[in-house]
């Protein structure tokens, strides 16, 4: 709380006003989504988008959970599996790598950083066919591993982890631990990982949201629709109207709101990692 009490009242008001303005810009457009979720398919297109028509939210929810024998729930479950398994593994692999790159000087380190940054530059369009041939050779196609395993190795997360490690871990602290006789692995788990908790939580959240919203990988590597994640499922529903005599946009709207629930829950459960006031003293 020290920050707020130190701030002058005028500053505090300005800060809150600014935050309110940003919050309005961020949240106001979602109003359409909320209103649309309560409408029937015909009202969706022919009534004012900013206000309610006949209230059909319960029907829409029932439709969402019963359509095609409740495949939406299967999709949600798959997404949870891919998201949790993939992101947990990714966070471990990438935080360790970023920590290693930030805290140690060893031969090949420059090449590694170059490769990581270089990989950001490659347009994905170039890689679809070569990657598919590789996944076929590895027998990954149409297995959950095709989604989970590659997500472990996120160059972006490594870079982020390195940046956070450099900011959060004073090298002297590691020196001190070494002089106390701790091994490098123990130092990582007892000092490094703890100091990087905010960074790691951020990396986890970013990875999870990315995995939750991804559909191109699943579209290419998964065949059976019962293995699809929710975003690919919603995408396919959205596309139904293009050349079928039916339109499922209403289900997509409700489904996308429901699909936000786990992400919001995750966000709330990670709140404590962004608490201000980690102090060096508290670690010693």
């Amino acid at each position: 709380m020290s920050t707020a009490t130190a701030a002058r009242p005028r500053t505090r008001i300005a800060v809150i006003m600014g935050l309110v303005a940003f919050a309005v810009y961020s949240v106001a457009p979602v109003w359409w989504l909320v209103v649309a979720a309560t409408k029937s398919q015909a009202d969706l297109y022919t009534t004012n988008g900013l206000w309610f028509a006949e209230f059909r939210l319960w029907d829409n929810l029932r439709g969402l959970f019963t359509y095609q024998d409740g495949i939406f729930l299967t999709w949600m479950g798959n997404t949870l599996l891919y998201g949790v398994a993939g992101t947990a593994g990714m966070t471990l692999v990438c935080v360790a790598c970023g920590y290693g790159l930030a805290m140690y000087r060893f031969r090949g380190r420059g090449v590694m950083m170059g490769a990581i940054i270089g990989s950001f530059l490659v347009p994905g369009a170039l890689l679809t066919i070569p990657s598919f041939l590789l996944y076929t050779d590895l027998n990954l196609v149409d297995t959950p591993w095709a989604i989970i395993l590659p997500s472990f190795f996120s160059a972006f997360s490594v870079y982020l982890a390195k940046v956070y490690a450099e900011g959060a871990i004073p090298p002297e602290l590691l020196e001190a631990a070494r002089i106390d006789g701790a091994g490098e692995y123990r130092i990582f788990f007892s000092v490094g990982a703890r100091l990087m908790s905010t960074g790691a939580a951020t990396i986890f959240l970013l990875g999870f949201v990315g995995s939750w919203n991804s559909f191109f990988g699943p579209l290419v590597y998964l065949r059976d629709q019962h293995k699809w994640p929710v975003m690919l499922g919603l995408y396919s529903w959205l596309k139904v109207k293009v050349d079928n005599s039916t339109d499922l946009t209403g289900l997509v709207v409700v489904g996308s709101i429901i699909s936000l629930v786990p992400m919001v829950a995750l966000m709330i459960s990670l709140q404590r990692y962004w608490r201000s006031g980690i102090t060096l003293g508290s670690l010693r």
Binding site: I129, L219, V220, Y235
Partner: peptide
């Protein structure tokens, strides 16, 4: 399949493989 372009991408891939 998810949609028309997705089917096209997938068929190109499996024919190549």
């Amino acid at each position: 399949q998810a949609d028309n372009p997705g089917t096209a991408a997938n068929l190109r891939n499996v024919v190549a493989a």
